[in-house]
Design a protein around this nucleic acid. Sequence first.
DNA 1: GTCTATAAAAAGATAGAC
DNA 2: GTCTATCTTTTTATAGAC
Lengths: 185, 185
Amino acid sequence: MAKPTAAKQTYVPPLLDLFRQYGYDGVSLSKISQATGLGKASLYHHFPGGKDDMVTTVLDTLDQWLQATALDALESEGDALARLTRMGDRICEAYSHGQKPCMLASLMLGSAKENFQPQVQGMLQRWMGAIATVLTQAGMAESLAQERSEEALIAIQGALIMARAMDDAAIFERTMQHLPQQLCR
Amino acid sequence: MAKPTAAKQTYVPPLLDLFRQYGYDGVSLSKISQATGLGKASLYHHFPGGKDDMVTTVLDTLDQWLQATALDALESEGDALARLTRMGDRICEAYSHGQKPCMLASLMLGSAKENFQPQVQGMLQRWMGAIATVLTQAGMAESLAQERSEEALIAIQGALIMARAMDDAAIFERTMQHLPQQLCR
DNA sequence: GTCTATAAAAAGATAGAC
DNA sequence: GTCTATCTTTTTATAGAC
């Protein structure tokens, strides 16, 4: 996970928005050009590898965000319930309360899967690991904690899909609100 | 939901496989031509509306499958647990034990969303309704049954995402196996 | 119903001026 | 670092023969 340069970082927000909502194959250079305000040639100046290069940069930034924001909440003060709630709040915010898809899930579709599955898998693995750690620290058995952390990611990803498909953000918000107690039950 | 003609039905299986795995934007006519063995011109003979026409045909077929196979299991004999288990088995089979994505979820990404979201929403709604009916028939309160049916679809969709991302079919199989008891708890 | 051929548009990518 | 211009490939779509 290489840390992207500052210049590249500038264009990450619009790129993230595009790739998560359209998926790798649905994002064209024209769309990117319009969203960033850069001409195609300028895009290749910053990202010589084209779309792959852009996705890699976005993933690296997401990886840092995951560590510094979502997982950081799991290491904050308070009991397991409080920590998980804090993570939930940050997650909810990051997904615009369920109105925006998960980039990791979007990349598992189409031609992007073969290229980015390992990195996506790694990020999800670390995410689950961090949740499991909180649960074991609260006294839960290791194997059960791992099972529950898997359930957590299933709930997050599933709720994002359903909230979007049903056009109902409340589905995601409800799921995220119930999640901490669900995990600690 | 119009019933597709017999001729069109012939090409539904390869089309379904393509659209669920690549998403709308990731499927090109070349891919379709290769998968079906038909030339591009022949494809337009059967589907004058192009990709949109194909997706509509696949969705109509899926809708019939949902009713005749998945939801039919919910109206079969036995108690709620037995019926839900029967549905779970058929679902598990339909998704190749978690190795293949859900077409409905795949269509919620990219340019397909605006065109097909209503139909997808309707199918998911009927699916949840059928599950909720089984639960209420088993004595559960209406509002709780609806909540649980939502959880069911969240679990299915989330498990499909995670099984694919983690490259671990067991995630989906486990989720489907636990689902009936989870819903009846 | 299927094909070859072809056209028109869009996408990915690069060269070179400024 | 950004642009215009250009090129190549791919994609969508159609015409017309068989």
